[in-house]
Nucleic acid binder design. Structure first.
Length: 551
RNA sequence: GGGCGCGUGGCCUAGCAUGGAUAGGGCGCUGGCCUUCUAAGUCAGUGAUCGCGGGUUCAAAUCCCGCCGCGCCCGCCA
């Protein structure tokens, strides 16, 4: 239910009946809510914009949707009636209608899909958080959403890991599996630097693994499976879960089957096959190899097989991908659509999280692991709330919520394609534009409602304070924000809005006493606080952040 | 070299898709506000040639062209 559209439509209806049909725009607050710039009309009407605006304002019909319509410097400004707004908005929120969107289609969101060669680091986590939040937003928007992780157990990286497991002896301690096994991977790469022959041995592992070599499958089950368990555990700590894990090795046969379907676009070279991207209208690369001359498949082919698998299950597919995948994605999409022309495939690209000293790399051990970030954040939160008289269990619970809130918000609050540099002091900031700020605001609202008993009745005409109106106007934007985030595939829009809304509530909180307000006003404010609480809780949920009643 | 993305106060960031009225926030720094619903809050001050140069327009951070800087991609890796 889009609330502002009701007012926008009314403004445009009034303009039309005044003889000046057109679109209104959002106005800066000091001028009103909607504005109609008259400059473009000046030429055709042979009048100055100022006169046109004045004429409209003088002749326009009155409406109880607007408390004021006036002309200022060539603009016609409309100011929404607070009473009308309060009535529509509060009812929409409190009856839950504001959260309802049209039922849409099935969507698969694939995210993270990190190589299972070691623990998850913060660089990769941006992918996970964007994907997870995107999934939540699409679900809220009415889609039936399924979240996928594509487990890359076939490629060279995993072959390196397995080579390491077989050939390098490492003292294992009691660390979690992902931390234990990554050492084989790192050691194998060190070995590869010294020994150029290793490349061949790894190719042999790839070949045998693809053909289902039992010993290698067994090893992969233990080591790749173990690392995956670690990654899943790390992600679970920050509220991320998946509906389906698709193992790449399970798609090798399917990958071989689809090769002939692409035959018109494929050429052979020494027994290897590649797609001619130029012929497909894709710039940046000529030959995309799909099949090695030794008879093993290459990642692009397996990826097409996977996308075909997904396209058969859902009309719409969204991949969350690092910026390095742009060309690959274009190619995959074209090739997929040759096989299945009605497949709808979209990508949500993001830039890497770097360290001040450069790109994160598991191979080189230059990383900040997600678990370390979570641990640090928890320690810092614990330090802040340890003397607030919470019981042990509650303290741990709040600590966890706030720490995760800080991390998730920090990463989600930036436009996805903007490069990010990880800095501890920023990631662990709990003040200002941060997750804990919003959670704290939620706790304040909860605290008010906890202290009163209220029948649920209220009178919207009791609206009296500008801060009440401001808060309502922002609440009324909720449906537009969700629609934008869902259609533009941009979770950060939700993060920005959540912060703005919380900040607005804090101003209301400062200026408008609720519990001590006189009868009538008090009930109206209860309703407003309750509405804010509902909406901000939903927004936090879309960001994967829990809303603490106390903190 | 070609392609894609990013460039906004000391630092981080919104606005750019759909051009409009003094470019919003946050961090930092300075100074206020707890006898009233949680001070993880709030108020005031500080600080911006919107990378550079042209063009289009009544109007450009926003659109177009050229250039510069940074990142990413251009592999029988994934």
């Amino acid at each position: 239910m889009e609330i502002l559209k009701i007012f926008r439509d009314e403004a445009e209806r009034l303009l039309k009946s005044a003889g000046y049909p057109g679109k209104v725009e959002e106005a800066r607050e000091e001028f009103g809510d909607f504005t109609f710039p008259c400059f473009p009309l000046a030429k055709e009407r042979r009048k100055s914009p100022i006169d046109i605006a004045r004429e409209i304002a003088e002749n326009i019909e009155k409406s109880d949707y607007f408390e004021n319509i006036e002309s200022v410097a060539g603009y016609v400004n409309f100011r929404i009636s607070p009473k009308k707004l309060a009535k529509i908005t509060l009812n929409a929120v409190l009856e839950g209608r504001i959260f309802e969107f049209e039922k849409k289609e099935k969507v698969i969101v694939e995210h993270t899909s990190a190589n299972p060669t070691g623990p998850l680091h913060v660089g990769r986590t941006r992918n996970s958080l964007i994907g997870d939040s995107m999934g939540r937003i699409l679900r809220r928007y009415g889609h039936e959403v399924e979240i996928h992780y594509f487990v890359n157990d076939v490629g060279k990286q995993v072959a390196m890991l397995l080579w390491g497991v077989k050939n390098i002896r490492i003292e294992e301690d009691n660390e979690r599996e992902d931390y234990r096994y990554v050492k084989y991977y790192q050691a194998a790469y060190k070995e590869a630097e010294k020994d150029p022959e290793l490349e061949k041995k790894v190719q042999d592992i790839i070949w045998r693994y693809e053909r289902g070599d039992p010993e290698l499958r067994e090893l992969a089950k233990k080591y790749v499976g173990g690392i995956m368990r670690g990654i899943i555990e790390s992600l679970r700590r920050i509220n991320i879960e998946f509906d389906e894990f698709v193992w790449e090795s399970s798609l090798v046969d399917k990958a071989r089957e689809i090769l002939p379907l692409l035959r018109d676009y494929i050429s052979e070279e020494d027994g290897a096959y590649y797609a001619d991207l130029k012929k497909l209208g894709i710039e940046g690369k000529e030959k995309l190899y799909l099949y090695r001359s030794d008879g093993t498949t290459l990642y692009p082919l397996r990826d097409i097989a996977y996308h075909l698998y997904k396209a058969e299950r859902a009309k719409k597919n969204i991949d969350v991908l690092g910026e390095d995948h742009k060309l690959h994605f274009e190619a995959i999409k074209r090739l997929l659509q040759i096989i299945k022309p009605d497949a709808e495939l979209y990508a949500l690209f993001y830039s890497f999280v770097k360290l001040p000293e450069g790109k994160m790399s598991t191979r080189q051990g230059r990383v900040v692991y997600l678990d370390d970030l979570v641990n640090e954040a928890m320690e810092k939160v614990r330090e802040i709330i340890k003397d607030r008289g919470y019981g042990e269990e509650e303290l741990e619970r709040i600590t966890q919520m706030v720490a995760v809130g800080a991390i998730r918000f920090h990463i989600l609050n930036v436009q996805e394609e903007k490069p990010m540099t990880f800095r501890w002091e920023n990631a662990l900031s709990f003040e200002g534009e941060s997750g804990p700020f919003i959670q704290y605001t939620y706790a304040r609202a909860s605290s008010i409602l906890r202290k009163v008993s209220w029948s649920g009745e209220f009178d919207a005409s009791q609206i009296s304070h500008p801060q009440e109106t401001r808060l309502l106007k922002l609440l009324a934007k909720y449906p537009d924000v969700i629609r934008d985030a869902a259609t533009r595939l941009s979770p950060y829009l939700v993060a920005k809005y959540a912060y703005t809304l919380a900040a607005q509530f804090n101003q209301f909180y400062r200026d408008c006493p609720v519990i001590k307000a006189e009868k009538g006003v008090r009930e109206f404010r209860f309703a407003l606080v309750k509405a804010f609480k509902e909406v901000i809780k939903d927004l936090l949920n879309l960001l994967g952040i829990e809303a603490p009643e106390k903190m």
